[in-house]
Amino acid sequence: MADEQPTSTAEHWKPIPGWEGYYEASDHGRIRSVRRTVKTERGQRTFRAQIIKSSVRKDLHFTVGLYRDGAGKCMRVHRLVMAAFVGPCPDGMEVCHNNGDPADNRLVNLRYDTRSENMIDASIHGTHHNTRKRRCPRGHVLVMPNLIRAPWDKRRFRMCLACNRASAHVAYHKDRKGDRDAIADSYYSDIMRDAA
């Protein structure tokens, strides 16, 4: 048939551990309720199967509300997909998005990895807050030559050279912390003047 989708794009569903008989996750990153009949005070009530609408958190991860026995729980979709298809998250591990898009909860885009690798991924994909910084807390512009970014550091953290030098100066000379800001501004002026 012309309307049939190729088998490679067919959506597969598996029960979510701990929620068997209530909810299932798909390898396309969706969550659905399972058709079930429940006894109530007025007889029986049948709940139809349906896709659960997800919400977006501030960190751009999708969550769904799962309910059982009158109690609800808000859970992240990527964790539910991995639990259903791969198994429970090993100790010290997190669910990582291979392409850096927290909205892409397809199984092929997810893996278990360490917190450190998750942060490195965020840096590489430009979603880590530190990679988007344009100025340091003192207001110094984070551009070369006032930018520290070690070539061996996969995380690509951006630090202010002037403030870093001022901190080292204060620590070495045991100066008062209040002097650090003035020293940092002086270093910044020198760095930017030399670059011009």
Rank of each mutant, 00 (worst) to 15 (best):
Ser186Val: 10
Asp59Val: 10
Thr40Ala: 12
Arg68Thr: 03
Cys89His: 10
Asp104Tyr: 04
Pro88Phe: 06
Gln5Thr: 09
Phe157Pro: 00
Ala122Asn: 08
Ile31Trp: 05
Asn164Ser: 15
Tyr187Cys: 08
Asp3Val: 14
Leu147Thr: 01
Gly92Gln: 13
Ser8Leu: 08
Arg36Asp: 14
Lys58Met: 04
Ala84Phe: 09
Gly43His: 14
Ala182His: 12
Asp91His: 04
Leu161Pro: 00
Ser26Gly: 05
Ser26Met: 07
Ala103Leu: 12
Tyr67Cys: 09
Thr63Arg: 15
Trp19Thr: 02
Cys136Trp: 04
Val81Phe: 05
Ala184Pro: 15
Thr40Pro: 04
Ser33Asp: 02
Cys74Thr: 10
Ala25Tyr: 01
Asp101Val: 04
Ile120Asp: 05
Ala103Thr: 13
Asn98Met: 04
Val143Lys: 10
Asn146Ser: 00
Met75Cys: 10
Pro17Gln: 15
Arg42Ile: 03
Val38Thr: 06
Met144Cys: 01
Thr40His: 11
Arg111His: 11
Ser55Ile: 06
Asp175Tyr: 10
His78Asn: 03
Arg115Cys: 05
Ile51Cys: 09
Val64Asp: 06
Arg132Ala: 15
Val108Ile: 06
Leu60Asp: 14
His125Val: 04
Arg45Ala: 14
Val34Gln: 11
Met192Gly: 05
Arg42Gln: 13
Asp185Arg: 14
Arg48Phe: 07
Arg155Gly: 04
Pro102Ala: 00
His78Val: 02
Arg158Phe: 03
Gly65Leu: 14
Lys133Ser: 12
Arg42Met: 11
Glu117Ile: 12
Val95Arg: 01
Ala2Gly: 08
Ala168Tyr: 03
Trp152Gln: 05
Tyr187Val: 11
His128Ser: 15
Ala166Gln: 04
Pro6Arg: 03
Asp194Ala: 15
Ser8Tyr: 12
His140Pro: 04
His173Met: 10
Arg36Ser: 03
Leu107Gly: 05
Lys154Val: 09
Asp179Glu: 13
Tyr22Leu: 08
Arg111Phe: 07
Gly29Val: 07
Ala103Ser: 14
His78Pro: 00
Asp104Glu: 05
Arg32Asn: 01
Arg79Ile: 10
Ile191His: 07
Arg35Asn: 02
Asp153Ile: 00
Ile52His: 01
Ala83Leu: 02
Tyr112Asn: 09
Lys58Ala: 15
His125Glu: 10
Asp179Ala: 14
Tyr23Ala: 00
Pro145Cys: 01
Gly100Tyr: 08
Val77Ser: 03
Lys73Val: 04
Lys39Pro: 00
Val34Ser: 00
Tyr67Asn: 04
Ala171Thr: 11
Val86His: 05
Val141Met: 12
Thr127Tyr: 08
Asp185Ile: 08
Arg180Leu: 12
Ser123Met: 14
Val64Trp: 01
Pro6Ala: 05
Pro6Tyr: 05
Met192Arg: 15
Gly18Val: 08
Leu142Cys: 01
Ile191Asn: 01
Val81His: 02
Lys58Asp: 15
His97Arg: 07
Pro88Gly: 13
His173Phe: 11
Ser116Thr: 12
Met144Arg: 12
Gly72Arg: 14
Gly65His: 06
Tyr188Phe: 12
Arg115Met: 12
Tyr23Pro: 01
Ile148Phe: 00
Tyr112Ile: 12
Asn164Cys: 08
Ser123Arg: 05
